[in-house]
């Protein structure tokens, strides 16, 4: 098992006097994609069981998680923009 490299201070790599980098959510641990699909699946289960309020809440949560994942992808340092 390899150890993680030490985290560099924020000032490293910046030109003196340049504005600070835009805040990103790249440091956040991303939500597993498969889990997002499971949240949609749970919402389908609510619809089938006739629980309208739970279905609406589940869909709102799933959509919010998808949007969060989208913002992670657009701002992450990983090459995720495909």
């Amino acid at each position: 098992m390899t150890s993680r490299p030490p985290r560099l201070p924020r000032s490293v790599g910046r030109v003196e006097g340049s504005p600070p980098p835009a805040p990103t959510c790249a440091h956040l641990r991303p939500i597993p994609m498969a889990f997002l699909f499971l949240s949609y699946l749970a919402t389908f289960a609510c619809v089938i069981r006739g629980r309208r309020s739970a279905a609406l809440a589940g869909l709102a949560l799933s959509t919010a998680l998808s949007v969060a994942m989208f913002f992670h992808h657009t701002t992450s340092g990983l090459e995720l923009n495909f």
């Binding site: 994609m33 997002l36 699909f37 949609y40 919402t43 389908f44 619809v47 089938i48 006739g50 309208r52 279905a55 609406l56 869909l59 799933s62 959509t63 998808s66 994942m69 989208f70 992808h73 995720l80 923009n81 495909f82």
Partner: peptide, 25 residues
């Protein structure tokens, strides 16, 4: 599929879920 492709699939599932609310309720 790329990450954005998977997110678009989720968008389609969301639309299908909205339509399924009409079916059920």
């Amino acid at each position: 599929p790329c990450p954005l492709c998977l997110l678009q699939r989720m968008g389609m599932l969301g639309v299908i879920l909205g339509l399924s609310l009409n079916t059920a309720f």
